[in-house]
């Protein structure tokens, strides 16, 4: 058996692989099978809408061209596109999206991540990440204003001297005050991260954004 073709093919090849798949993959699937997976439309909330409207006010012309009116439907579309770009541009190879219960991470970033937070379409596949060149982003929403993000994506070193983060001028039509569709989508996505939590550290203290209205 240990040196025969069928032993190696069926036991080592298929059997052990399936065993591990059952143990490590199917167990969590069964544990979480009753959870509802939210769609991009369902994860749109008050806070990200407020940010979306903020973008529309700050960059009226660009926004109009990109998404028209700041409706919830347009916001869901921006989230989808934003996440597609976040993956395609490789942001997730420099930024993680989970806060661990150790190493003071909850003091730096915010509440420790919970499993339920990832049950949505925008975590398919989940963007836990394996490397942090830059900080974790799962609680990034509200931490900075949209203008900050615009300048930062255009040229990170302007607002963060010595930043090794690459620049993304193709998110803009020439200058940081003219974000294009891609730019607005990525900013919406970033502002959405963590917007589902109790606390949302919106820097301008607007009640509307903090969800208290």
């Amino acid at each position: 058996m240990f040196e025969s073709k069928s032993g190696i093919f069926f036991i080592a090849g298929i059997g052990f692989f399936l065993l591990a798949f059952l143990g490590n993959g199917v167990v969590p699937m069964i544990m979480y099978k009753d959870r509802h997976e939210q769609t991009a439309e369902e994860v749109v909330n008050k806070r990200v809408m407020a940010q979306f409207r903020d973008l529309a006010q700050r960059y009226p012309e660009s926004f109009q061209n990109a998404f028209g009116e700041p409706t919830e439907e347009a916001c869901a579309e921006a989230l989808r596109l934003g996440r597609q770009l976040y993956v395609g541009e490789g942001c997730w190879h420099c930024h993680s999206q989970f806060v661990r219960p150790v190493s003071n991470e909850s003091r730096r970033f915010g509440p420790v991540s919970k499993s339920e937070e990832y049950d949505n379409e925008l975590q398919r596949p989940v963007l836990f990440g394996t490397r942090r060149v830059g900080p974790d982003l799962s609680r990034e929403g509200g931490r900075r204003g949209n203008d900050w993000h615009a300048v930062h994506f255009h040229k990170p070193q302007v607002v963060s001297t010595d930043s090794p983060m690459p620049e993304y001028p193709w998110f803009f039509d020439g200058s940081p005050d003219k974000p294009n569709r891609r730019g607005i989508a990525v900013m919406t996505y970033i502002q959405w991260l963590g917007s589902w939590l109790e606390e949302y550290p919106y820097y301008e203290e607007l009640a509307e954004v903090k969800g208290e209205q």
Binding site: G25, Y32, E37, Y118, N120, R124, P125, V126
Partner: peptide, 9 residues
């Protein structure tokens, strides 16, 4: 999606 996808990943 989510955590189960993380385990598979």
């Amino acid at each position: 999606a989510g955590t189960s996808a993380g385990a598979i990943g």
